[in-house]
Amino acid sequence: MKVVVAGGTGQTGRLLIEALRARGHEAVPAARSTGVDAFTGDGLDAALAGADVVVDVTNPVSREERATTEFFRVTSENLTAAEGRAGVRHHVVLSIVGLERGSELPYYRAKLAQEAAVRTGGVPYTIVRATQFFEFIPDVLIPANTDGDVVRLAPLRMQPIALSDLVGILVEIAESAPVDGTVEVAGPEVLLLDEAGRQLAAPGQRVTSDGRPYFGADIPVDALVADPSARLGTTTFAQWRAA
């Protein structure tokens, strides 16, 4: 099976390409560095020729709401249009758990626009809503909420997943029939944001849960937790840390 991975040279995309090839698939990364720009449409038709499935794990550089929304909407419209011309049978897009509950966040509103474009794109699809990766906590969350030696995190619960688990599930979904709907994916445990932060903070950092907004937005305490029907990874937080 030929699978084109839009955003296939990024963190998630590289691992997905490796996992697909390990399963015997022809996996093709589509990114500007490989001559494909899904936002402008350049190179899409050539890249999608003969493709069975497209998995979209693209992410914009900008975090400004208008630019991010435009990126997700136009990229999805270009991908599904090219897929229609190529006869692609399944469009898989990686999204985020809790978009409606967290819709005060500009990035979440942009992802909702992406999902809407996929639903109306005319190609059978599966929207994969995943929780945050474990790596999100030390790489993004802690730096963004650090003031001197104090890390101030919102009083929320989260259900993070190992990136390797997510990639494995994405491969299985790509191999399956489209559901024309949404599948949620999460880690096996629900954690308190500040407790996870304490375990990953740098020496000398003090982590507090002081009621501050989550990236500037007041969202429900369980906005980052998946529904009970979600597909779960197997790697626990302790196992990920040990590895």
Rank of each mutant, 00 (worst) to 15 (best):
residue 2 K to A: 02
residue 2 K to L: 01
residue 6 A to V: 15
residue 7 G to M: 10
residue 8 G to Y: 13
residue 11 Q to C: 03
residue 12 T to M: 13
residue 12 T to K: 02
residue 13 G to K: 04
residue 16 L to V: 07
residue 16 L to D: 12
residue 21 R to V: 05
residue 21 R to F: 05
residue 23 R to H: 11
residue 24 G to V: 00
residue 28 V to G: 09
residue 28 V to I: 14
residue 32 R to N: 02
residue 33 S to E: 12
residue 33 S to V: 09
residue 34 T to D: 09
residue 35 G to A: 08
residue 35 G to K: 04
residue 36 V to I: 11
residue 37 D to Y: 11
residue 42 D to K: 14
residue 45 D to C: 05
residue 49 A to P: 03
residue 51 A to E: 09
residue 56 D to T: 06
residue 57 V to C: 12
residue 65 E to P: 09
residue 69 T to Q: 13
residue 69 T to A: 14
residue 69 T to P: 07
residue 70 E to C: 07
residue 74 V to Q: 15
residue 75 T to Q: 14
residue 76 S to T: 15
residue 76 S to R: 10
residue 77 E to S: 11
residue 77 E to P: 05
residue 83 E to S: 15
residue 85 R to G: 03
residue 89 R to P: 00
residue 89 R to Y: 00
residue 94 L to N: 07
residue 101 R to C: 00
residue 103 S to W: 05
residue 105 L to H: 05
residue 113 A to F: 07
residue 115 E to R: 05
residue 118 V to D: 05
residue 118 V to Y: 09
residue 120 T to Q: 13
residue 124 P to K: 00
residue 125 Y to A: 01
residue 126 T to Q: 04
residue 128 V to H: 08
residue 129 R to T: 00
residue 130 A to D: 03
residue 135 E to R: 14
residue 136 F to R: 06
residue 137 I to S: 08
residue 138 P to E: 10
residue 138 P to V: 04
residue 139 D to N: 14
residue 146 T to G: 08
residue 147 D to W: 06
residue 147 D to M: 10
residue 147 D to T: 12
residue 150 V to Y: 13
residue 151 V to D: 07
residue 151 V to T: 08
residue 155 P to F: 10
residue 155 P to R: 15
residue 160 P to I: 01
residue 165 D to R: 05
residue 166 L to R: 06
residue 169 I to W: 05
residue 175 E to L: 14
residue 179 V to Q: 06
residue 181 G to E: 00
residue 181 G to H: 00
residue 182 T to G: 01
residue 186 A to H: 01
residue 188 P to T: 04
residue 192 L to V: 07
residue 195 E to K: 12
residue 196 A to W: 01
residue 198 R to L: 06
residue 198 R to S: 10
residue 202 A to K: 15
residue 203 P to W: 13
residue 204 G to S: 11
residue 212 R to F: 02
residue 212 R to P: 01
residue 214 Y to N: 10
residue 218 D to L: 12
residue 220 P to D: 06
residue 224 L to T: 02
residue 227 D to Y: 08
residue 228 P to Y: 04
residue 231 R to P: 05
residue 233 G to A: 07
residue 233 G to P: 03
residue 233 G to T: 04
residue 236 T to M: 01
residue 239 Q to Y: 01
residue 240 W to E: 04
residue 241 R to T: 09
residue 242 A to C: 03
